[in-house]
């Protein structure tokens, strides 16, 4: 029980600390910084601004995989912009591939737009 006692003291001190982004809670915009490496799945319903590295599945309505973003696994979205790297499977409605993108694997799309310069080695499948 002495362990709990010490933890309570820590929690009290943390209450004084306010997280800088906590005021921006009016929308479900999630930001994954390039400092983060994730093993597992991320599931959102709104928008993810992805700059990190993930081994697993990334799923949300709208996803931006930025230049520093790296996905090893699957990406599911309705609207996806890829400027970074994806190795695996992409399943989206509207896909925008930027010139800096590197994609390997399988791409299932309804609408696709590829900027010149992107490096893609993949199987393209149009879904209805």
């Amino acid at each position: 029980m002495s362990i709990f006692g010490s933890q309570e003291k820590k929690e009290n001190s943390e209450d004084k600390f306010t997280f800088p982004l906590s005021s921006n809670t009016n929308s479900h915009h999630s930001f994954i910084s390039d400092d983060l490496e994730i093993n597992g799945n991320i599931t959102g319903k709104d928008y993810i601004d992805f700059n990190g590295k993930i081994t697993g599945t990334l799923r949300s309505n709208k996803i931006d995989i930025r230049e520093k973003g790296l996905v090893n696994g699957e990406v599911h979205a309705e609207n996806l912009i890829v400027a970074g790297e994806v190795d695996g499977e992409i399943k989206v409605d509207d896909l925008y591939i930027r010139s800096t993108a590197k994609i390997k694997g399988v791409i299932k799309y309804k609408n696709i737009d590829i900027q010149a310069g992107a490096i893609i080695t993949a199987e393209l499948i149009k879904t209805i």
Partner: peptide, 17 residues
């Protein structure tokens, strides 16, 4: 070497850089 696809196009199959 350079691939450009405009929105609305249908491109299916293996794409290799």
């Amino acid at each position: 070497s350079t691939l450009e696809v405009k929105f609305g196009a249908t491109i299916e199959g293996m794409v290799k850089h």
